[in-house]
Simulated assay, not measured.
Amino acid sequence: MIVSHNDLAPWNLIRSPGRWAYIDWDGAGPTTKIADLAYAIRAFSQLDQFHELDDALQQLRAVLDGYEASPDDRHALLPAMIERTEAMRDLLLGSIGTGAQPWASMAVEGHGEYWTGAAAYLRGHAAVITHAAR
């Protein structure tokens, strides 16, 4: 177990000349290395329904190589990406009924649809993503 940001993604990264900073630390807490890595890699590789698969796979390989991901990490990556993506979908869509904020508002604004599409994208391209991650 590690303590992690739990939402490392381009939408939480602010860059300026010579400085990078992550924001939105409200979800920080315990997780596993592979869960954190899977979430960040999926986001930064842009493995979703709005980006070209070939470009996303190229970014996936670059991030994995730069991270020097182990063979075990590479093997566990896709199932962990699917699990984290579906967990975000479930959190957002489940929050509509409970009213839990900010997730309920985000779901109504379309974020739940994004995560639903991203999960379907990962499942639909599972073989090629797994191959690219090797």
Results as ranks from 00 to 15, higher is better:
77 L>A: 09
58 Q>L: 11
1 M>I: 13
92 L>S: 10
48 D>R: 03
48 D>S: 04
16 S>C: 11
19 R>A: 08
118 A>M: 00
19 R>D: 07
130 T>R: 07
73 D>T: 11
20 W>P: 05
56 A>M: 00
27 G>I: 14
103 W>M: 08
99 G>C: 10
12 N>W: 12
6 N>F: 05
15 R>G: 01
33 K>D: 10
47 L>T: 12
121 Y>D: 01
85 T>L: 01
69 A>R: 06
46 Q>V: 11
122 L>A: 06
48 D>G: 08
94 G>T: 06
65 D>G: 10
42 R>P: 12
71 P>W: 05
131 H>R: 15
80 A>P: 11
89 R>Q: 10
14 I>V: 15
131 H>A: 15
2 I>S: 00
29 G>M: 04
32 T>F: 06
16 S>T: 15
17 P>S: 06
125 H>A: 00
64 L>W: 01
1 M>D: 04
119 A>R: 00
119 A>W: 08
14 I>S: 04
9 A>V: 05
121 Y>G: 01
119 A>E: 12
17 P>T: 03
77 L>S: 07
64 L>M: 06
100 A>V: 14
54 D>K: 04
47 L>Q: 05
114 Y>F: 15
133 A>E: 02
33 K>N: 09
1 M>S: 10
116 T>H: 03
2 I>C: 13
108 V>W: 13
44 F>G: 03
10 P>F: 09
55 D>W: 04
32 T>H: 00
15 R>P: 12
52 E>L: 12
39 Y>C: 11
128 V>K: 01
101 Q>L: 05
23 I>K: 00
75 H>C: 12
